[in-house]
Simulated assay, not measured.
Amino acid sequence: MEQWIITKEHHEQRIDKVVVDLHGQASRTAVQRWINEGAVLVNEKEVKTNSKVQQGDKVTLTEPAAQEVELLGEDIPLDVVYEDSDVIVVNKPRGLVVHPAPGHESGTLVNALLFHCKDLSGINGEIRPGIVHRIDKDTSGLIMAAKHDAAHEHLAAQLKAKTTERRYKAIVHGVIPHAKGTIDAPIGRDPKDRQKMAVTHVNSRPAVTHFSLEETFKQYSYISCELETGRTHQIRVHFNYIGHPLAGDPKYGPKKTLPINGQALHAETLGFTHPRTGERLRFSAPLPAEMEKLLVDLRNAH
Rank of each mutant, 00 (worst) to 15 (best):
I88N: 01
C117E: 00
D79C: 04
I127M: 12
A65T: 13
G122T: 07
R33Y: 09
H104V: 08
Y82I: 11
Y168F: 07
V47D: 01
A101I: 14
P177Y: 05
T163S: 15
R94E: 13
A39F: 02
A30Y: 08
H148I: 02
G130A: 02
L142P: 12
E63P: 10
I88W: 03
I176C: 07
H152A: 06
H148D: 13
T163Q: 12
N111D: 01
D57V: 03
G107S: 09
E46G: 11
L120P: 03
G107A: 09
L109C: 08
L142K: 03
K118V: 05
L71T: 01
A150E: 15
V59Y: 01
V89H: 06
H152Q: 13
A146L: 06
G103H: 11
R94Y: 04
L113V: 08
M144L: 15
P100Y: 06
K52V: 01
P102I: 14
I135D: 00
Q55F: 03
L71M: 05
A145F: 15
D84C: 08
D75V: 06
V42P: 01
E37I: 13
T49H: 11
V98G: 01
H116K: 00
E153G: 09
E105D: 10
G141I: 08
S51I: 02
V31G: 09
H173C: 07
T108C: 04
G122M: 02
V172E: 03
H148A: 02
E153M: 04
A151S: 14
V69F: 09
N124M: 15
I171P: 13
G95T: 10
D79R: 10
H152N: 14
G107P: 11
K52W: 03
G130D: 03
I176F: 07
A170E: 12
K169C: 08
N50Q: 10
R166L: 06
D84W: 06
G125E: 09
L114Y: 00
K118L: 04
V132L: 09
E83N: 10
K45N: 09
V81I: 14
T108W: 02
Q54Y: 10
K45G: 05
H104N: 12
A145E: 05
K118S: 05
P93A: 08
V87P: 12
V172T: 06
P100K: 08
K58C: 05
P102L: 15
S51K: 00
L78C: 05
S51N: 02
H116F: 02
I171W: 07
Q158D: 10
N91W: 03
Q54I: 00
V87W: 13
Y168I: 04
K162N: 15
V42L: 02
G73K: 07
I143V: 14
E70K: 14
G125K: 07
L71F: 02
I171S: 07
S121A: 03
N36T: 13
V175T: 12
F115I: 01
H133S: 05
V89C: 11
V98K: 01
R128V: 11
G122F: 00
T164L: 11
G125V: 03
E70R: 14
V87H: 06
A170S: 12
V47M: 01
V69E: 13
Q158R: 08
V97Q: 06
P64T: 04
A151N: 08
Q55I: 00
T108H: 04
